[in-house]
Design a protein around this nucleic acid. Structure first.
Length: 299
DNA sequence: TACATACAC
DNA sequence: TATGGTGTATGTA
């Protein structure tokens, strides 16, 4: 669940590809202007522009010699990092699809075919995919969301309920990596390397799960990382009736990037091959990298 | 070191 | 009419 800032709709997340961004941004501006918040943001933007100017003029003042030295030292550092590169492990990142919204839709089917969001009038936590079509997103105030989507249904947060589902999900993940790490209620990382070794010795029965809850039909999952993650997602669905997306790669950051690719209810594996990985990173929009937000992106 | 800012969920 | 709460990392005085 990411942040939408006051001026522009954040189109970097799933479900926002074909929106009329110009129209949405205009509506957001219309609803925001004259507010204290808006003026505060404008002041900060101005301050940031000034800081970027200072940086640029500093960059211009560097001599060719200084630039060469800096490049050399960067290369030395990169060389060092190259040596520490480890492609031998396999991580996965599990990311629940529109988590709070999905829980509410599961528990109240009348919400399933309407644009809805979870949160308060002051601030929304997340929205379902139908609402995202209107530009309604996490971290957007409810009253602005209503400008974008007058029929929006807003459901209050019920963290107790989300925590219950979350702990069921985390329990499943822990069976694949006892040292898994969670990130909020709807995300987790697991290092599957050890499990994949052990998995080779598991019987077919141990890799078999019912197709549906209480169904006699079953699915047998194979021993690859891809199939292991399918198994995890399937088990999460069996237990919670919620869908998850997942990414598989040789480290956590790459796995996280991969979980976004086939969202919702999909997964993507990045091959552990240096050239493939470098190519993947090269083609990445810079905003997708952890730590690069709106402000750093502009500078 | 303290305080502010940016970022993520 | 109106824009959260919490934690971490990083930059700056």
């Amino acid at each position: 669940m990411s942040r939408t800032t006051f001026l522009n709709v954040d189109d970097t997340k799933a479900g926002m590809a074909d929106l009329d961004k110009e129209k949405i941004n205009k509506l957001i501006q219309e609803a925001s202007k004259n507010s204290k918040f808006f003026k505060q943001q404008q002041r900060r933007e101005e301050e940031n522009r000034r800081r970027i100017e200072v940086k640029l003029s500093k960059i211009k003042s560097f001599s060719n010699f200084q630039i060469e030295q800096a490049e050399k030292s960067a290369d030395r550092y990169l060389n060092q990092l190259d040596k520490t590169r480890d492609l031998s492990r396999i991580f996965c990142h599990i990311d629940m699809d529109a988590f709070y919204a999905s829980v509410e839709m599961r528990d109240n089917p009348t919400l399933q075919h309407v644009p809805m969001a979870v949160g308060g009038e002051g601030m929304l936590s997340t929205s379902n995919y139908l609402a995202r079509q209107f530009g309604v997103r996490a971290a957007m105030p409810g009253f602005i969301a209503r400008h974008l989507c007058p029929n929006l249904v807003i459901v209050p947060c019920d963290f107790e309920k989300y925590r219950t589902d979350s702990s069921k999900i985390m329990k499943i993940i822990s069976e694949y990596d006892e040292n898994y790490g969670s990130c909020g209620l709807d995300e987790a990382f697991a290092d599957l390397t050890n499990h994949l070794q052990i998995r080779k010795t598991l019987s077919e029965e141990q890799r078999t799960f019912p197709k549906e809850e209480n169904s006699i039909q079953t699915i047998i999952f194979g021993i690859t990382a891809e199939e292991t993650v399918q198994e995890i997602r399937h088990r999460i669905y069996l237990t919670t009736r919620l869908t998850a997306s997942a990414g598989i790669a040789c480290n956590m950051r790459l796995a996280k990037l991969c979980s976004d690719i086939n969202k919702p209810n999909g997964q993507y594996q990045l091959e552990s091959n240096v050239n493939i990985i470098l190519n993947f990173i090269r083609n990445l929009p810079i905003r997708k990298i952890k730590g690069i937000g709106k402000v750093v992106f502009l500078s």
